[in-house]
Nucleic acid binder design. Structure first.
Ligand code: MN
Ligand code: MN
Ligand code: ZN
Ligand code: ZN
Lengths: 136, 136
DNA sequence: GTTGCTATGCAATGGTATTGCATTTTTTTA
DNA sequence: TAAAAAAATGCAATACCATTGCATAGCAAC
């Protein structure tokens, strides 16, 4: 049983060929990718199956999703130990030049100081600008 | 010249009946609203005209938009003096119960501590959970 | 009043997300 | 191991939301 199979097992998701391929593809990315991007990474794969794979992964905490405002949700593998709680989550950065969405894993979400009565469950924080690769 | 006409004039947007009506409608909202919501607030108004009105308002800094992850962009009037820079902007809160998106105007965006080389231009910060009205 | 620019209204299009259903694959049970 | 049940996959269809093209109406300058 390899590392990906282990993760699927831990998260109570059945291991299938398709799911392992998707995990493998996601692990190779430097950025968060869209369903469309994922589809493009395969020769012959059904878009809907990939869609449902991502949805399953998201529900089970294997990937996290980012609404970066482009209209297409981006996905990236969670880091080991991530429970996808606001404390676990990190900032995402959308570069207006290269149009890629980066996980800034080391930049955690700062304390938001919400007004009294607001119960926090999730946070989607997308900073936009120019990434370090594009700003030379 | 009333307050709305003043704002339009300041922001170099021509004053029209439609635009004044849209500003009036936006000013009456307690939450940020979608194009669809805006359309529903009128008896007979063309969706596309409303769409372009919102786009114009956004470009000229009269409204700000929020990508709350529901798929439909939300809009709200900017506060006086807002330049829509990351320092001016505030947190938004999407309530999973009432499904409304609130402007938390007093909760400014905290410092993000981006890694070196990342140039910040915009921030979209949406906290999700249960709002104070729904959490009693 | 004529001319020119802008805003509006209607139609059409493009893209992403989502669901229904038949079929295949995997797992469970006998 | 064979049959039955459950889950995953593949294809088709649908639902939205966002965006553009183009003709017309309204306004402003000349
Ligand atoms: Mn991430
Ligand atoms: Mn706001
Ligand atoms: Zn970049
Ligand atoms: Zn609420």
């Amino acid at each position: 049983m390899n590392a990906f199979e282990n993760i699927l097992h831990e998260k109570h998701v059945r291991s299938t060929a398709m799911r392992l391929l998707v995990m493998d593809t996601l692990a190779k990315q430097q950025t968060a990718i869209s369903l469309h991007d994922l589809e493009a990474a395969f020769e012959h794969a059904d878009r809907i199956t990939l869609y449902r794979t991502l949805k399953t992964f998201e529900e089970k905490g294997i990937v996290h999703s980012i609404e970066d405002g482009t209209g297409a949700t981006k996905y990236a593998l969670c880091e080991p130990g991530c429970q996808c709680s606001p404390q676990d989550l990190h900032i995402h950065f959308y570069c207006n030049k290269c149009e890629k969405t980066y996980c800034l894993s080391k930049s955690k979400i700062p304390d938001l100081g919400l007004p009294k009565g607001y119960q926090l469950q999730e946070v989607n924080l997308v900073a936009k600008g120019v990434c370090n690769r594009c700003s030379d």
